[in-house]
Amino acid sequence: MSVLIAIPARYASTRYPGKPLVSLKGPDGDKTLIRRSWEAAMAVKGVDRVVVATDDDRIATHAAGFGAEVVMTSSDAQNGTERCAEVVQKLPGHDVVVNLQGDAPLTPAWFVEDLVKGLLADPEADIATPVLACDGAAVEGFLADRRAGRVGGTTAVFGSGGRALYFSKEVIPYTGRTFAPEDETPVFHHVGVYAYRPQALAAYPTWPMGPLERLEGLEQLRFLEQGRKVLCVQVQAHGRKFWELNNPSDVAVIEAMMQAMDAVKK
């Protein structure tokens, strides 16, 4: 079995232009977002190849400079999944293709390892993605982002066997209650990593964007709108904090989490 990790990265982000080249200060010094995401991918066990997929020469030059393999993709890709589909065309022959988003440098290696195992164990699934149970503090963080008009984390609801029912940038399911920071909740944070079967990934760009994907701005909804099985794989944080860089204000959050993780190691 051969596994490829592709890290899609574009410079011209609407919400945060130049995001992949933003510097993040950690215990090991200043490194760009794309470099930290690549290092997270390189830590995953059982992976045969890791590439940065971009349409921007600045990102490509920078990534090659720290040793990453780069695959140039077109500027026509509407999202990371379409960019990964281009990678599959150029680098065929892998059994599983993982999309590790370039804005998630805190992704633990075991998230991806569990994800690949989950996809291989479910022959009906075309795509698998991790979900993380939220405590009350995490839910309040999501709600605070929404109140402030910021794009925060994505939540997921799923049914029997982990089959995804829906993903949203709103906090779902609706609970109608306030949680204490340490409370368990029925809310699951969707971690923006995907493992695809190559055939489904190759078909993805041929499907039209549906109304739900257009409204939410969530690429995985195209699979649901096409009636494909998306498998939600529940992962465990094991004390690790996880956050994605969606807004400039997230830089300080991620830097603080990196410092906290380093303190725990010591």
Rank of each mutant, 00 (worst) to 15 (best):
A6E: 03
A6R: 02
I7S: 07
A12I: 01
T14P: 12
P20V: 03
L24I: 10
K25V: 09
G26F: 00
D30N: 11
T32M: 11
I34C: 02
A40M: 05
V44H: 07
D48P: 04
V51L: 09
V52H: 05
D57E: 11
I59R: 03
F66Y: 10
F66L: 10
A68W: 00
E69I: 00
A77N: 05
A77F: 03
Q78D: 06
N79T: 05
E82L: 06
C84H: 01
A85L: 01
V87Q: 03
V88I: 11
P92M: 06
H94K: 09
G102Q: 01
P105G: 13
D114L: 10
L119G: 12
L120H: 05
A133C: 08
A138M: 05
F142E: 11
R147N: 14
T155K: 04
E170R: 09
R177D: 03
A180N: 12
P181G: 09
D183I: 02
H189N: 15
A203E: 12
Y204T: 00
G210P: 08
E213A: 14
E219I: 03
L224D: 04
G227E: 14
R228V: 09
K241Y: 12
F242V: 07
D250P: 02
V251Q: 15
I254M: 14
A260V: 02
A263E: 15
